[in-house]
Lab assay of single mutants.
Amino acid sequence: TIDEIIKALEQAVKDNKPIQVGNYTVTSADEAEKLAKKLKKEY
Rank of each mutant, 00 (worst) to 15 (best):
N23A: 07
I5R: 02
I2S: 03
A8V: 08
I5H: 03
L39C: 07
A8M: 14
A12M: 14
D15A: 10
K34Q: 14
D3Y: 11
N23K: 07
K38N: 05
Y43V: 12
T1H: 10
A32I: 07
A32P: 00
G22K: 01
D30Q: 12
K41V: 11
V26W: 02
V21N: 04
K17Q: 10
E42I: 14
I5G: 00
K34I: 10
V21R: 00
Y43I: 14
D3F: 14
K17T: 11
E4D: 13
V21E: 08
D3P: 09
I6Y: 02
K34N: 09
I5V: 09
T27H: 12
V13S: 09
T27G: 11
K14Y: 03
V13R: 05
L9G: 02
G22D: 11
E31C: 09
T27I: 11
E4I: 08
Y24E: 13
E31K: 00
P18M: 08
V21D: 06
K40C: 14
K34L: 12
G22R: 01
L39Q: 01
T27E: 13
E10K: 05
A12R: 02
Y24L: 15
A29D: 04
N23T: 04
K34G: 07
A12K: 02
E4R: 06
L35A: 01
E42G: 05
T1D: 10
L9Y: 00
I19V: 13
Q11K: 09
E31W: 03
I19K: 03
L9T: 00
E31I: 04
K14W: 03
K7E: 10
A8F: 05
T25H: 14
I6Q: 02
P18K: 05
P18L: 07
I19L: 07
T27Q: 11
L9F: 01
K34Y: 10
A32S: 02
K7D: 04
I19S: 03
N16T: 04
N16M: 07
A36R: 07
P18Y: 04
K40W: 10
K37C: 14
K41I: 12
V26F: 03
G22P: 10
E4V: 06
D30A: 13
T1P: 09
Q11C: 04
I5P: 01
K17S: 05
L9Q: 01
P18Q: 05
K37I: 13
E33N: 08
A36P: 00
A8H: 05
K17E: 04
K17A: 05
T1A: 10
K41G: 13
A36I: 15
I5K: 01
A29W: 07
A8N: 04
